[in-house]
Structures are given as C-alpha cells and as structure tokens.
C-alpha cells in the first residue's frame, strides 16, 4: 500500500469523501476513483457500470469495483444522468489500477451546478486522508 505522500492526486480535479474524483468540462462531468481508492482495493478484476440514460442522485451507488475477494460500491459525487461509460474497462479492468485518472468510469450531465462546487479540493481531500 502507498504512503499518503506517494499518492497521485492531480490539482485540477475535485474529490469526494467516498474517494471518487470529478472533472467538469462544459456541461459534462467525468467521474472516476482516486489513486487512494484503487490502491486500497488492490488488483481490480471487474468494473460494474450503469447504463447510459440511468439517473442518480448525489451519493447513490452507481456501480461496483471488484477485487478477487472484495466488492466495493462506488457512489456518485454529483447527481445526474449518465451520458457515457468507459467501455474499455469491461475487458480491461486493470486500467483503473494502472491510471485511475486517464481511465474514468462514467460521464454524466449534472442536474445542478451546485453539487460540483461542494466537492473537495485536492488540499481538502488530502487533509481527509491524513485524518
């Protein structure tokens, strides 16, 4: 497992306290899991994703990540409708371990702008991890 100072946490992203990241580009928000989350899970063997068109409220479970002997739910940091899922992960779930930022999980169209604003900055997320 990585030490906290070894984690890759890009400055330009926003973070949730459930260890997801979000990035806003125009009207679409891209969502994935953080380096910390992938490191805790270990070798990811399967990513269960929602279908395009599914809608979730902030904090809802939108999928699961599986390692050999554990299942972790992923929670949506911003409510909205799914407009894209990363199909590469269906056959190559290990991409999330290799680079959890390039390898996003879903893209959504948010219901409101406000929820994105309430997410954590890199600095605040780091504080959360340090406890």
């Amino acid at each position: 497992m990585k030490e906290i100072n070894e984690l890759n946490l890009p400055e330009e992203l926003m973070y949730s306290d459930d260890h997801e990241w979000a990035q806003k580009e125009d009207a679409v928000i891209t969502i994935g899991i953080t380096d910390y989350a992938q490191d805790q899970l270990g070798d990811i063997v399967f990513v269960e994703m929602p279908e395009i068109g599914d809608s979730f409220a902030k904090g809802d479970e939108f999928g699961t990540l599986e390692s050999v002997k554990a299942v972790s739910e992923v929670f949506i940091p911003v409510g909205g409708e799914v407009v894209a899922v990363n199909e590469d992960l269906e056959d190559s779930p290990e991409l999330v371990n290799e680079d959890p930022y390039t390898n996003w999980i879903i893209k959504i169209k948010p219901v409101t702008d406000n929820e994105f604003q309430t997410l954590l900055s890199r600095e605040k997320y780091l504080q959360l991890l340090k406890g």
């Binding site: 063997v45 399967f46 599986e66 390692s67 002997k69 554990a70 299942v71």
Partner: peptide, 9 residues
C-alpha cells in the same frame, strides 16, 4: 468469480 457468492457479497 467468488464475488458473486455469499461469503463475500
């Protein structure tokens, strides 16, 4: 594929 099973899920 043990994550389908009762001892994990």
């Amino acid at each position: 594929l043990a994550t389908r099973e009762q001892h994990i899920r």
